[in-house]
């Protein structure tokens, strides 16, 4: 077995584009779900509107990279308002229903034939990232970090991505340790109690939804620029649930929970895949009964079982506090 290949692939997954994209999505969810208790099941739509604003404005309409970024962030704010205005006055489950439906509507619009001229249909868009990589100050060449070898562009997006993660963590950390964050936690515990103490609960929930959406939408930019392409089917419900799995794995309502969760989650997903493939190639009995493409599915079963075991023995996630979870909810 080629251990250096297994290790380099796993490390690249743990610290590469996927971990950054889903880490950012989970940081946003953490503010919404972990701290405020908002069940946003449409996080992938926030990533989608950001990625497609950038791709469509630059590629189909000829605007500059920065305009694409600004419009993408505004689009995420607008989406949050659109979802929040009708549902945040209602019980928590309404937001869950509306967001999961809205995310699918966004995805289906993006891949529709009618709007192919704007969004490229199911093929997506792939010529918009020049403006970003023109900003790359790193000299052309290959860069080797430990067992990983990266091109200057890969290195650039990974550095920018982790800077965005750091920024998102800093914002979250500043927010949740403040009295503003205290109100959010109060809302998560019991919003009527918070209302009775003179807080405008609706406003706080809206702010949390918007900020969580904007933090998540940064993941959409990193995805689009890292792949140098956008494809509508990436923004399905799977992505949202990956982000939830990451958040719960790392520990909800912990500032570093989403990032740790993203690193471990992607290391497990990619690591188990390359290990299974290597075992098949090595002709190990039993394992080699399956094909490489079957192994790609089996790994999800393995990771799913692993998450189940974690939930049984450590339901609070890796960084969570068991004491907190042991308290009765009300």
């Amino acid at each position: 077995m080629d251990w250096s290949f297994i290790i380099s692939t796993t490390l690249l997954a743990a610290f590469g584009i996927e971990a950054i994209v889903f880490g950012l999505a989970a940081i946003g969810l953490n503010l919404q779900f972990g701290y405020t208790g908002l069940l946003n099941f449409g996080q992938s739509a926030f990533l989608a509107v950001a990625a497609y604003s950038l791709a469509t404005l630059v590629s189909q309409m000829g605007f500059s990279f920065w305009i694409g970024i600004v419009v993408g962030i505004l689009a995420a704010v607008l989406l949050a308002l659109l979802l929040g205005v009708p549902t945040l006055r209602l019980r928590a489950d309404y937001l869950a229903i509306v967001t999961i439906a809205a995310a699918e509507i966004v995805r289906l619009l993006l891949r529709s034939v009618t709007l192919k001229e704007w969004f490229g249909g199911s093929d997506g868009i792939n010529d918009f990232s020049r403006g970003f990589y023109d900003l790359n100050p790193i000299a052309i060449g290959r860069y080797t970090i430990g067992p990983i070898s990266l091109s200057q562009d890969q290195l650039f997006i990974i550095i920018v991505g982790w800077c965005l993660v750091a920024l998102a963590l800093l914002v979250t950390w500043l927010l949740v340790r403040s009295p503003w964050g205290r109100v959010l936690k109060g809302i998560r515990e019991d919003e009527d109690a918070v209302r009775s103490l003179g807080k405008n609960v609706y406003l706080y929930k809206m702010q949390a939804l918007i900020i969580g959406g904007v933090l998540g939408c940064l993941g959409g930019f990193v995805y689009a620029l890292g792949r140098q392409a956008v494809n509508p089917d990436f923004f399905g419900t799977d992505s949202t649930f990956f982000a939830y799995a990451i958040l719960i794995l790392g520990g909800a309502a912990r500032v570093f929970g989403p990032v740790l969760g993203a690193i471990i989650f992607w290391a497990l997903i990619q690591g188990s895949d390359v290990i299974l493939r290597s075992l098949i190639d090595a002709g190990v009995p039993v394992v080699s009964l399956m094909t490489a493409s079957q192994a790609a599915i089996i790994r999800f079963i393995l990771v799913g079982a692993g998450l189940m075991i974690l939930m049984i023995y450590r339901p609070q996630g890796i960084l969570g506090d068991r004491k907190e979870l042991a308290l009765d909810a009300r």
Binding site: G186, S196, L327, D328, A329
Partner: peptide, 12 residues
């Protein structure tokens, strides 16, 4: 006001 079913914010 306070509530009939006490609303202590448990995890705070």
């Amino acid at each position: 006001r306070t509530f009939q079913l006490t609303k202590a914010l448990s995890r705070m």
